[in-house]
Write a protein that binds this DNA or RNA. Structure first.
Lengths: 230, 230
DNA sequence: CGACCATTTGATATGGATCAAGCGATGTGG
DNA sequence: CCACATCGCTTGATCCATATCAAATGGTCG
């Protein structure tokens, strides 16, 4: 019934390896150190759910290895991807008690799982933690606002903006191995997979990028892309 | 050169009344009270800028009376409205040092202007203030994410979603006087003014809403609108 | 009343969606 | 090791929702 074939993927036995959530480790004594110390690492296989929309938002997450997507399914079966999270990124910063999006591992991933209650308790005593939390949420807000600006542009502009975003996040190199599929990109940009594919070949033909393989992108002309984007 | 006629509006002499920003008042002694106590009220006439994109984000704002829009101008002259703020709403919660959007009064408005440095200093001592700040930012994040979901839908769904949002915010009554123009709505929803207008008449013809006057909206069938929306 | 501005309505154009088919890489069973 | 199924991606043909261009209507203010 769902339009999106990705969602109907049969989960392989490997994919099902999903641990239970460990209790957050508390490093007594030196607590002001850093948010990371409070988390417990967990492994998630490709396409495995980390949390679901509507679940209690009791944990915060930090990507250690791999890539994570957050998404929402619309009533008509379409999927909107809210964000891609790369190593070092935190996600699950929902405001309310419940997650507004679902989260899945795009590749096999290691994620630090941090108990929210422990974090807010710590923030109450240590205001550098509170400040970090606020800064993270603010950065997330800026990211989503940027996403909005992408969504009102033409297909070329969206794809160009996406490529610039990804390469900027990949240490600013002008060569990236994309961890996500065309369908993921399409659902992030509010386009179809066909339009994303066509647009990439257009960009390749206009010498703005090179595509040694479908997931491997080389920026040949950052200026041209930036001109497209804004 | 700009496509958007709103931007070329001649500012009347009345419109130019724009005060300088007052220093935040500090209510010594009982400081934990509330964020509002730290603000100084200011008046802004219709269409007057409150702050500009790229300016230092030294202040936070709370709408007392009237309506405010935040927006960004794209390189092609189009305008994207980020949000409408009604009495009680806070705005200017940018993460970085600079405002990512500009802000303008849609109607003559009274706005509480709060010095950010005073607020963060207070938050450092009073963690209920820190919590409030985080909660506000989180709510803003949720709002922007909701906006994204609007932007990927059809014109009918976007307009229906907009109307539901506005009526929900207007104390849940099913009758509102919209403070913003069709152009504002169009720029919020990523549509043209013509499409917004046509969609509203469609909704009127299908008995979902009534339009006693162009700014006065009556919801006749919330269910139908919600079904459209999601 | 007349000018101006916001809104509506009409006619046409177009960018991206949809429907459909082909292609290349990867993996599996014979 | 090859034949074949599967999957992700690309390419082609057509359709449709919304943009664009244009004009009419209505409301407000001097």
């Amino acid at each position: 019934m769902l339009k999106n074939p990705v969602l109907q993927k049969v989960i392989s036995s490997e994919d099902v390896e999903r641990g239970t959530r460990p209790a957050a480790q508390f490093v007594s004594g030196r607590l002001g150190d850093s948010i990371e110390l409070m988390g417990a690492p967990m492994q998630f296989a490709r396409n495995v759910e980390i949390y679901g929309e509507g679940e209690q938002a009791d944990y915060l997450y930090k990507v250690v290895k791999g890539t994570v997507r957050t998404y929402k399914i619309l009533n008509d079966g379409r999927r909107q991807i809210g964000a891609f999270y790369l190593p070092g990124d935190m996600f699950g910063l929902e405001s309310g008690a419940e997650h507004a999006f679902s989260a899945e591992a795009i590749t096999n991933a290691t994620v630090l799982v941090i108990r929210r209650s422990a974090l807010t308790a710590l923030a109450a005593r240590d205001n550098s933690v509170a400040r970090q939390l606020l800064a993270m949420t603010g950065r997330e807000l800026a990211r989503v606002q940027n996403h909005i600006m992408l969504l009102i542009q033409t297909a070329q502009e969206r794809v160009a903006g996406f490529l610039l975003e990804m390469t900027d996040r990949a240490q600013g190199r002008d060569e990236v191995e994309l961890p996500m599929s065309r369908q993921d990109i399409a659902d992030y940009l509010g386009l179809t997979i066909e339009t994303v594919s066509r647009t990439l070949t257009q960009l390749e033909n206009s010498a703005a990028i090179a595509l040694p393989s479908s997931r491997h992108i080389v920026l040949r002309n950052r200026g041209a892309l930036r001109r497209l984007n804004s």
